[in-house]
Design a protein around this nucleic acid. Sequence first.
DNA 1: ATGGCCTTGGCTCAAGGA
Length: 261
Amino acid sequence: MKIATWNVNSIRTRLEHITTWLQASQVDVLCLQETKVPDDKFPLQVFTDLGYHAAISGQKSYNGVAILSKLPPQQIDIGFTAILGTEVIPWDQQKRVLSLAVNDLRIVNLYVPNGSAVGSEKYIYKLGWLKVLGTYLATVLKQFPHLVVCGDFNVAPQDIDIHDPTGREKEVMATDAERLALQAAITDLGLADAFRKFTPEGGHFSWWDYRAAAFRRNLGWRIDHIYLSPMLYSRAIACFIDKEPRTWEQPSDHTPVIVEL
DNA sequence: ATGGCCTTGGCTCAAGGA
């Protein structure tokens, strides 16, 4: 079974890239972030025609997540609220969390807030959001021990996940506070980064800035991840970044990450 | 040096992204 994650930076602008990639990769599940489309304008038919079901949670202009699945998904849970209840309603105003069951797996798709600049209001929001995420995942994990958590985490977990970690304490996505928050929310629960099972060395990235010819110069960051619960981690047979879509005309600034179970 | 570039909305510039 192949599961992938891809921040597409607008599903409508990237529609042709996504359909081309789906047909070539034949993944069973594709988790999308930054769809930037309200649910009533989601291009559902395009994916239905390709043989995929879609679970969606979007909004106008910003954020938005979706999960495409060849098999019909079970138990679609939108937002933190579906698991944690009404107390966390404010954290669901931005559409960043979507979960469903397929086969014997529970899949969680996340679009972690970017955080703008270190110390800013958005940065504080990001750290708060990751705290809620920890509670959310701990609760999900109790119910569903076979868990796949994928998405755009907007955090480079280690220095080797950044082309140049110099001055990282001043850079959003790279501060110790963000790394510790991510660790507390995910790896401390026993979930592990599938990519690192197969690739210990640095120099592998999933996002490159549009500016300064960053992709051509490979000035990237590895901020898109797939985390697996222990049994799935031992079962994983491959995890890789597919750089090809980033080479296409008018690409997303992120490229897909795929795990094979 | 501290910006570069892309997307959305609908204001042809501003905000947000990372």
